[in-house]
Simulated assay, not measured.
Amino acid sequence: MNAGKTTTAAEVGRAALRGGLRTGAIKLTGTGSGGDLWKYQDSGIDPVFDFTDGGYATTVDVSIASLEILFNRLVNAAAASCDIIIVELADGLYQKETDGLLHSPSFRASIDSILFAASDPMAGMAGVQALREIGLEPSALSGAVTASPLAAQELESLSGVEVFGLQRFAADDNALSICMRSAHVFEEQRLAKSA
């Protein structure tokens, strides 16, 4: 919570729009609140959806199978008018629904990259390690940690993953391509080494 997930997603959306991509956003899990969707809309992202569009006021205790159906329904609704769809998951990798989705083969097969938002270097490292343990490599890191240049530098050095603050999203023409690197690269490299 308050790690900067929505702000990060909105900045990725802005970068995609500057790159000429038709951009949509989905808040897949959480508790109903207009603020996240409004932030996306204020960034120029269209269409935007969240779980309330699928009939849920909250996704707490919603089964993974139901979330997979909801995800597919929302992606299908956005896909016709989008080149890229940004999906935000609720707070924390250990949160039951987030954890279930990240372990779901069908969900994992549907995502191209992961951008992890962290509040500080320790949280960022814990997140990177948790993702790597399940065979996913974050394409980049961002979030509240970038409010401190020293903290962002520390996290980048420790994790080996590039860290993007809001200014870098706005100024770096390569930001979007870096953030869209495949999340499955780490798993493929790990499997190749064990073969």
Results as ranks from 00 to 15, higher is better:
1 M>V: 13
3 A>H: 13
5 K>C: 08
6 T>F: 02
8 T>G: 04
10 A>P: 10
10 A>Y: 05
11 E>G: 00
12 V>T: 03
14 R>I: 10
16 A>M: 03
17 L>G: 01
22 R>Q: 06
24 G>H: 04
26 I>M: 05
28 L>S: 07
30 G>L: 12
30 G>D: 01
30 G>M: 13
33 S>L: 13
35 G>M: 12
36 D>S: 10
37 L>P: 00
38 W>T: 12
39 K>I: 08
40 Y>I: 04
41 Q>V: 05
41 Q>Y: 03
42 D>G: 14
42 D>Y: 04
43 S>K: 01
46 D>N: 10
48 V>F: 07
48 V>G: 07
50 D>P: 08
52 T>F: 11
53 D>Y: 09
54 G>W: 05
55 G>Q: 08
56 Y>I: 03
56 Y>L: 15
56 Y>K: 14
58 T>C: 02
58 T>A: 14
61 D>E: 07
62 V>P: 04
64 I>N: 06
65 A>M: 04
69 I>H: 11
72 N>C: 06
78 A>E: 06
85 I>E: 02
86 I>A: 11
92 G>F: 15
93 L>S: 06
95 Q>P: 04
97 E>C: 07
102 L>S: 05
105 P>D: 09
106 S>M: 03
106 S>F: 02
108 R>E: 00
110 S>T: 02
114 I>S: 06
119 S>L: 13
119 S>H: 08
121 P>T: 05
121 P>G: 02
122 M>T: 11
122 M>A: 10
122 M>K: 07
122 M>H: 04
124 G>S: 12
124 G>M: 07
124 G>D: 05
127 G>R: 09
127 G>P: 11
129 Q>G: 00
130 A>I: 09
137 E>K: 11
138 P>Y: 00
139 S>Q: 03
140 A>Y: 03
148 S>R: 07
148 S>N: 01
150 L>Y: 05
153 Q>R: 15
155 L>F: 03
155 L>R: 07
158 L>H: 07
163 V>H: 04
164 F>H: 09
167 Q>F: 11
169 F>A: 05
169 F>I: 09
174 N>D: 15
174 N>E: 14
178 I>F: 12
180 M>P: 00
181 R>H: 15
182 S>Y: 13
182 S>E: 08
183 A>Q: 03
186 F>T: 06
188 E>K: 15
192 A>L: 14
193 K>D: 03
194 S>I: 08
